[in-house]
Design a binder for these strands. Structure first.
Length: 256
DNA sequence: AATCTCAGCAACCGCGTTATC
DNA sequence: TGATAACGCGGTTGCTGAGAT
């Protein structure tokens, strides 16, 4: 690729590049930031000789080139946090990402859209529906906690206990408190910084914030009897069989 | 082997907020 | 105090590779 090597502050570059970044561009951006630091992205793009918008440079740096960025392999712990925090805050990806060190809002957003929404689709319910949230809380999250316990090979960390209970026994708590009990303890357990202050601070994007569903704890139904006896779909591998079961099945089983 | 389909992901876009002049 | 540039966020698009047909 060719660069025009314009001096910093020179005339406008009209033929901006778009699309995937090349190795050369990455190197230029990384080297420039190593020397001059980040920020002032528009002038940075010009001064570095990149035929990109400042926006594009910022995005590339934050989502890909930053040295502390982690990509791929969302761990069960991270999945758990994402589920919990999304339950609290909704699509506040940046806020959620703050509690997953090294993860970007873009990656979490992609994870949600590709993995989580896929499960909702397979269950024939909306990802924001109460039904799906119940499935997440009473099946998915306990399942993740069990996986974490199995992987650690030891007893379940105290922070998870309330979450894991529903899998093997009946409802441990009133639904009115269910939404926050495990959340706070989880947040302080493995995710620096702690999320326990999330509600109060509740950063907003004024006007765009659907505060009705992000500023309050989730409300969950009591765990249905017999829920724990249901087989687990494989959330992680996305192998919920097409005919395995549906949310309707869950509630019908509860009724009859 | 060729084609099709779809999941995953990187990047872009629009818009609201914040900072600076 | 208003204008505007810069920043940051969330939604969306489009490319790519893997699996299915």
């Amino acid at each position: 690729m060719e660069f025009h090597g314009k001096s910093c502050g020179g005339e406008e570059e009209l033929d901006l590049r778009r699309g995937p970044w090349t190795v050369d561009e990455d190197l230029i951006l990384v080297n420039y930031i190593a020397v001059h630091g980040e920020g002032r992205w528009n002038s940075l793009a010009r001064c570095a000789g990149l035929k990109r918008t400042g926006k594009s440079c910022r995005l590339r740096w934050l989502n890909y080139l930053r040295p502390d960025v982690r990509r791929g392999n969302i761990t069960p712990e991270e999945q758990l946090l994402i589920l919990e925090l999304h339950c609290r805050w909704g699509n506040r990806w940046s806020k959620i990402a703050q509690h997953l060190p090294g993860r970007t809002d873009n990656e979490i957003k992609n994870y949600w859209r590709t993995r989580v929404q896929k499960h909702a689709k397979q269950l024939k319910c909306d990802v924001n529906s109460k039904q799906f949230k119940d499935v997440v809380r009473f099946l998915w999250i306990p399942h993740l906690v069990e996986r974490i316990r199995a992987a650690s090979g030891g007893p379940l960390p105290a922070a998870y206990e309330n979450v894991a209970v529903p899998v093997t026994s009946g409802p441990p708590e009133n639904s009115s408190t269910a939404g926050s009990s495990s959340l706070d303890s989880l947040g302080t357990q493995f995710s620096p910084p702690a999320v326990s202050d999330g509600f109060a601070s509740g950063g907003t994007r004024a006007g765009a914030d659907n505060s009705a569903d992000v500023s309050q704890p989730c409300e969950f139904l009591p765990i249905p009897d017999g829920y724990a006896d249901l087989g687990f779909p494989d959330f992680d591998q996305g192998m919920w069989g097409d005919n395995l079961w549906t949310v309707e099945d869950v509630w019908l089983q509860q009724l009859f």
